[in-house]
Design a protein around this nucleic acid. Sequence first.
DNA 1: CTGATATCTTCAGGACGTGAAGAGTCGGCT
DNA 2: AGCCGACTCTTCACGTCCTGAAGATATCAG
Lengths: 268, 268
Amino acid sequence: MVVFAGQGDARRSMALLWRTPGPGEARPGPKPGLSVDVIVDAAIAVADADGMAALSMRAVGERLGRTGMALYTYVPSKSELVDLMHDRVLGELPVHYGLEEGWRAAATSWARDAWAFYLRHPWVLQVSQARPVLGPNEYAMLETVLRILRGTGLEAGVLRRVVGTLFHFVRGVAQTAAESRQAPATTGVSDDEWWLARSALLREAVPDFADRFPTVAWLESGAVEAPVDEDEAVPYLEREAKKTFEAGLTVLLDGIEAAVDRAGLPSR
Amino acid sequence: MVVFAGQGDARRSMALLWRTPGPGEARPGPKPGLSVDVIVDAAIAVADADGMAALSMRAVGERLGRTGMALYTYVPSKSELVDLMHDRVLGELPVHYGLEEGWRAAATSWARDAWAFYLRHPWVLQVSQARPVLGPNEYAMLETVLRILRGTGLEAGVLRRVVGTLFHFVRGVAQTAAESRQAPATTGVSDDEWWLARSALLREAVPDFADRFPTVAWLESGAVEAPVDEDEAVPYLEREAKKTFEAGLTVLLDGIEAAVDRAGLPSR
DNA sequence: CTGATATCTTCAGGACGTGAAGAGTCGGCT
DNA sequence: AGCCGACTCTTCACGTCCTGAAGATATCAG
């Protein structure tokens, strides 16, 4: 489920996102029993607990002791609610990273924080990035990363793409890790069980595997690693994703350093 | 909508994926009017045309002049159908890349082919990668990339993560590009209109933008580029994504070269 | 107190996946 | 030749989703 943003009245969305004060005067009618804030918080709680698929207007309403329809007084539609959830939760990300140890150390810290954030709120990865909602925390996050990477001295046009690449990388790998974490819960099968069953079936269905995919077979034969210092509480696939993340981050930052060197600037 | 894989009878899934011949004998009952193949093709057509959200059993059935329920004779569930679609469509990817010009040229070609593929079938990006289905074309793709990058001489453990990083990068950026392409169609608003309207509203709602996000403001002020050689048929956001893709690919491959150098091996 | 307005509920309509039941079709055995 | 049983496909049903419309209730301005 990719959720798109801001279909409704764009001006109202902006006002909700940036908290432009509304009418604000005393008005007739019953006192509001809810508010946009408590609704957004409840929605985030639902999504954190049971995933985006479980995020329904009813579920959010019931968490607040109302029906689903009650929310429509405060929020124009589910789509806008998702926008608000997204921007709100992005506020958890740190925004201050010291540059005393150079941009590379700061960028590494940020990437790791973002990684942890995405695993804490995996549903964020299902909100479409194509047309960002342009909320305050989204800009704060962009500002943070730009400030860090401006230290590279790269020219603005290049910088923008480098930042985009970094975002996409973190999101991409985190997405796989998040789905790995979600899978055992929704399917009731642990990673190890799953992998064991699947590879057995694969051998059965494809006896000539090693002939058809020699390089894959070579890779898997050499895949046995010393299980040193592994956190057994973290399931296999998620551990793998984390390793890919760390390795990929190194590669990516090496590549950025290469770009900096090529531009004839000192690395720090 | 993230679609998970293979909930049903795992053995039957494997057989469907790898085309292990079934009973195959003449059997009583009406002749099958459909087949797994035509169903999968129809489903791919639906997903290509209207996206994963529009992929319903009913929609696929109607495209074939049947009801949705008719499909359940051939395919155990929607989830398995998605698996079959995924693996089938991966067969479009080329598998042969010459290494005469070195691994970097081949990797670049592969990445660009994969990019085009994902934009041709954007729904593929919504199929979860966490627990891959292990179909023939999935392995063929892995085999292809591994063969290319084995030319780096990197050790197996590192290689696996580098390949993972490359996959995630291509998928991640392509996902944004694909959603960009999808957005105008589903919202009826072009990228330019959307951006214009949004930034106007943003200025209106946040007059002190440049003070709050100075680095972002700096970046956007320097964002005016010579519009040389641009394909006007490709909308703005997708063009941006493509540029990020190309720049990121360069950075990534530079990073891989750095890893190769560090391992004390010649770059080609 | 009255009328206007806001909140919240109930009902309804059209989507979705898929289980169960039944109609119709055809191969193979008696 | 005739019928049984396997097979395809449809219809109905249930529980889920979002959300428009209508109505009950609560509160404030005058």
